[in-house]
Design a binder for these strands. Sequence first.
DNA 1: TCTGGGGTCCTAGGACCC
DNA 2: TCTGGGGTCCTAGGACCC
Length: 418
Amino acid sequence: MFLLVDCNNFYTSCEEVFNPKLKDKMVVVLSNNDGCIIARSKKAKENGIGMGEPIFNYKSLIDRKKLIIFSSNFTLYADISQRVQQVLLTFDLDMEIYSIDEAFLFADMLSQDQLIKLAFSMKEKIYKWCGIPVSIGISKTKTLAKLANKIAKKSSSGICFLFNDTEIKNALKNTKIEDVWGIGRKYQKKLKSLSIFTAKNLIDQNDEFIKKNLTVSGLRTSLELRGKSCIDLEDITTFQKSILFSRSFSNKLTSFFDLKEAISTFVSSSAKKLRKQKMMARYMSIFIATSYFDKKNTFYANSSHLNFPFPTYFTSDLIKFADMALKKIYRPNIEYKRAGILLGNFSNENIFQMDLFSSPLSFEKKKRLIKAIDKINQKQKKRSVFFAAEGLNPKWENTPINKSCKYTTSWDELPKIR
DNA sequence: TCTGGGGTCCTAGGACCC
DNA sequence: TCTGGGGTCCTAGGACCC
């Protein structure tokens, strides 16, 4: 049996842990640049505040102090997530961290009664130790566990089991097709045009039809809904395949120089992430775009891809490559609103093919240099040492206005009790 | 003049997830 | 006026090989 443990309203719940007064209030957490709503408290959801909506739609609610807003604080959320995972580990089951607020667990050799008991004690322990409420769905496959979790969210106990065929059949009948894990916006539309409205409707189709319309992923989904497990627990050791860093700018950028500074900063951050995972990249993609919502000017978006002759995790190399890529897609006199970089095609830092013409000696030298830089930045303030290409005064960064403290990861920001 | 059949690898784009 | 960010998987088509 698979269990899906999912934190309720995760980001706003994290804020509540350190700010109990928020309980039963309308609270939302905002995206970068304080632009869109990316998390809502229960009360906010009940009052019809939509996911992904721009916050300026709710200006009057904020002015009247009915709606409390937070800038996102991912340092805090990631740390709380870690703590929840630690608690889950104490139950000694195979586990897959599926996202910042979800984990799949796999239990065999347990009776239904034991599973029920287990789920209740998990929920209780996580709340007691971390202050985070969770919902748990349990069933025969991951897709059914997801479905059970959705039902659990609405139930008073916060836990839902789908064990026998009648229970499952009923659940499928009452589940809208768009609520099935694996059916997104496009497929939903397609399926509805084919008169498929519920999960039950989907599993009643024949395999060939499903594969033709939804590819093998859709076929897997429907097999899973029928109770046949096709999606295994992901191995924890599976390594990451790409690193993306993208931002919308607070001020639009026009000059090549400004854009280059922003991109170089993105490169520097992604390279740091890459080194942390002891990986090297051989592929880079850069993209830039104007504002999608700017109706006055024509929309421009472009990307440029690059395969390096050798794998690297050196910021210096990557900044040079990024510069080459950016030159290909940059057009003058345009107001850019968004940019990003993607690194991929990874290999291990110790096992890789070197460039035939570079000397191992210079490689070692570069390695020592970058390790030293990382060390300094870790010990001292962030960005004590950085590359000139990143620029001294970023013109695109914004200062979040309503950010809570790093209560759990910074000595200077520990919660104070007065 | 007439020109086969069986493969692999790579990539862009489109779907999905949180 | 103000509109997010980070991932994975699958497929078709093009390039290549023998």
